[in-house]
């Protein structure tokens, strides 16, 4: 196959993947919009919230939200607004949802990035060490730790960390997101450790499996028997093992973004996760719709980015795509 047609196939793969992401997000947006109508009770009354209602007020809400229009025309009207960054008004605070989210997204994104950085810097090296020393005491201890870590509940771990480092040792602030800058970072350390704990355990396991699988390959035995320096063999192994690790890391980032709910509630952080939890309880449907759609978009886009990086990084995948 000529390289030009191979490149054409890669471009086609990228386009198909992009189109699939758009279709997926449209489907998600449809489900998210339906939430308003799937929630038990009259949508108008749900949108009114706890304010006193009268037939006139309900009628005006019905008119304002076009609730008497056919379902699909309501959906397209809503979708049009969403594409212009308009998610409607929050029922609870009576402010535009977009305004409400603007500050909070920053906190959640910072938390997710910090936890992600910790995962990369700690879990991946430990996974490599465990695989290289497979079967040793260090490996066994860390692997048992990972089994516990994968299953450990974020909120319980968070509260215990909060007790030990926040209350008992008084090293870290107990509540809130701080005043920005370094103070913000300081407030996010414990939450990020909590978030990174479970995900880190998962990444550790994946890294260990990937490196072990690579060490098992014939080319390693061949390289060793050829008398190659151990260091060079190790570089070869790591370069190949990193491909599945990168994939998992990409997926982990999307997962972290959605997984911040519990950590934010535990540490009373003003992010979108804690906003979602309280909005669900309050039945603040426009806010719930906006956050669900936003999270889905972040997850779908990271998955897309991972696939593209994958094609870029692994010639074997490129060849498979090009077929």
């Amino acid at each position: 196959m000529s390289s030009a047609s191979a490149r054409g196939s890669v471009v086609r793969f990228v386009l198909v993947r992009l189109a699939a992401t758009v279709v997926l997000l449209l489907a998600v947006s449809f489900v998210v919009f339906s939430l308003l109508h799937l929630t038990p009770g009259d949508p108008a009354r749900n949108l009114l919230g706890p304010k006193p209602s009268s037939p006139e007020i309900l009628a005006s809400i019905r008119a304002q939200y076009h609730l008497d229009d056919p379902f699909f025309s309501q959906y397209f009207r809503w979708l049009g607004g969403v594409l212009h960054g308009d998610f409607g008004r929050s029922i609870r605070s009576d402010t535009p949802v977009t305004e409400l989210l603007a500050d909070r997204v920053v906190v959640t994104a910072q938390l997710a990035f910090l936890a992600f950085a910790m995962t990369v810097l700690v879990a991946v090296p430990l996974g490599i060490v465990a695989a290289v020393r497979a079967g040793s005491t260090i490996d066994r201890t860390m692997s048992v730790g990972a089994i516990i870590g994968v299953g450990a509940p974020t909120y319980a771990v968070g509260l215990i960390l909060l007790y030990v480092f926040g209350v008992s040792l008084d090293l870290f602030p107990v509540y809130g997101s701080g005043d920005g800058g370094l103070d913000r970072l300081w407030h996010l350390v414990l939450p990020a450790v909590t978030l990174a704990f479970g995900v880190g355990a998962l990444v550790f396991k994946l890294t260990r499996t990937a490196v072990l699988g690579e060490l098992d390959q014939d080319y390693v035995a061949f390289a060793v028997s050829r008398g190659l320096e151990p260091r060079r063999v190790r570089t070869m192994v790591l370069r190949n093992a990193f491909i599945p690790v990168i994939t998992s890391l990409g997926l982990v980032f999307g997962f972290l973004f959605g997984g911040t709910i519990l950590v934010e509630v535990t540490f009373a952080l003003q992010g979108i996760g804690s906003l979602l939890a309280s909005s669900v309880t309050f039945k603040d449907i426009p806010v719930v719709q906006a956050i669900t759609l936003l999270t889905a978009a972040v997850i779908a886009l990271t998955a897309l980015a991972v696939d593209l990086i994958y094609v870029g990084a692994d010639p074997r995948v490129r060849a498979r795509v090009a077929r």
Binding site: G151, A156, I160
Partner: peptide
């Protein structure tokens, strides 16, 4: 947390230990 930390530690440890035991 500040007044009776056992109210957090006990149920927290129960969830962690039970989940870990089942996992292992």
């Amino acid at each position: 947390l500040g007044r009776n930390s056992a109210a957090v530690i006990l149920p927290g440890m129960l969830i962690i230990v039970t989940a870990a035991a089942i996992n292992l």
